[in-house]
Simulated assay, not measured.
Amino acid sequence: MELLLQFFNTLFELSNEMAPYILFGLIFAGLLHELVPDTIVKNHLGQNSLLSTIKAAVFGIPLPVCSCGVIPLAAGLKKSGASNGSVLSFLISTPITGVDSILATYGMFGWAFTIYRVVTSLIISIIAGIIANFYTKKEIAQSVEEEHTSCCSGSSCCSSSSHEKKFSIKGVFKYAFVTLLGDIASPLFVGLLLGALITVAIPQNLSEILLEYSWLSYIIVILIAVPMYVCATASLPIAAGLMLAGVSPGAAFVFLSAGPATNTVTIGVVKEMLGKTTLYIYLGTIVVGSVLFGFVLDYVMSGVDIKEMIHLHEEAGIVAIASSIVLWGFVLYFVFGNINKKFKVFS
């Protein structure tokens, strides 16, 4: 009973922490959909090229969006015609960095560590995008051909795309909370439940375990960081705490890199939106890249002198709780609404 209460309490806290960013991402994606023509996305991010992948990665670096807030933005890019590689590159680079995270990293670790974090996230995201474009090239080409054939089967070839898009507030919210949220509701629901379960399962004495098994610290950090939800800024005090406890800077860096870039929610959405192949590329590139750059950091730096650790733990405010209620309302509506529809079909 105690574990069950702890699970629901963790789920509540996790929802409060994530919901405002997810809702912000949905609204931002809706605004982009209304303001930015799909042709611009297709022209700049729709090609299976290195330049498109780099553009997506660079575009994502300054955005102050977490690994869950980036989901609706990435979904919007995909719907607008961006390639798998561009979407994946954006998905990885955006949550690891961000203006707020960059400034916080500088305040805690200095410019050298900050630049290293930004550059490595850029490299990892670009490599992931290149690999994704290479392995999904045939799938994308087939999809584009089918869409072209379908679109041009009528009397006019894709005539609907030539109409100029008019901005509409109603269109923003319809696209955000009906189209996008409807697409990601199921993996979001499962991801939140798994995220809470994993958070409860993580031992409280993490730093002691990492010190006791220092030779396994990289693997342990990866196993914890990949499914766990932690935003780029919130990961900083955790990493600083690990370093102060004696964990190597490289292992702490792995947490800073893999933690914000992945979580159970994003993993589920990537699988549904981009397919299994891209999901494996997404996870594999982040894991290998984070560990590799962690080793490099340990080799270059004998240690990191942290004089002050920043750790803020604030109670959820009204905005966070209200956002959580709104998000869960939509998610439950889409999830159980779809289940009821499927049940009626088979009954």
Rank of each mutant, 00 (worst) to 15 (best):
Y116I: 08
S156R: 10
D100H: 12
F177M: 10
L193P: 00
L122A: 10
V190F: 09
S101R: 02
I169N: 06
V178L: 13
I131F: 08
A132M: 03
S153H: 13
V119Q: 04
K138I: 07
S155I: 13
T97A: 15
N205C: 04
K170P: 05
I123S: 06
D183C: 06
Q204H: 12
P95T: 06
F189S: 05
I169V: 13
C158Q: 10
V178E: 11
L103H: 05
S186Y: 12
H148T: 11
S162V: 12
L193M: 14
T179K: 06
S150W: 10
S155A: 13
S159M: 09
L193T: 02
I96Q: 11
C157I: 06
V99M: 13
G182S: 09
S168L: 09
S143Y: 08
Q204S: 12
S153N: 12
K137F: 09
E164K: 15
V144W: 09
Y116N: 05
I92T: 04
Q142N: 15
V118T: 11
I96D: 00
T114Q: 06
T94Y: 05
Y106R: 04
Y135W: 14
P187H: 04
L197V: 09
A176Y: 02
F189P: 02
S162M: 14
K170A: 14
E146R: 14
L197I: 07
A185N: 05
V99T: 10
E139T: 13
L188I: 02
G107I: 08
I102C: 07
G154Y: 10
S121T: 01
V118Y: 02
M108V: 15
L122P: 00
N133I: 01
L194D: 00
L206Y: 07
K137Q: 12
I127P: 02
G110D: 11
E146V: 15
A104F: 11
G98D: 04
I102S: 06
S156Y: 15
K166R: 09
E164Q: 13
L103W: 10
I169L: 14
A176I: 02
S93Y: 01
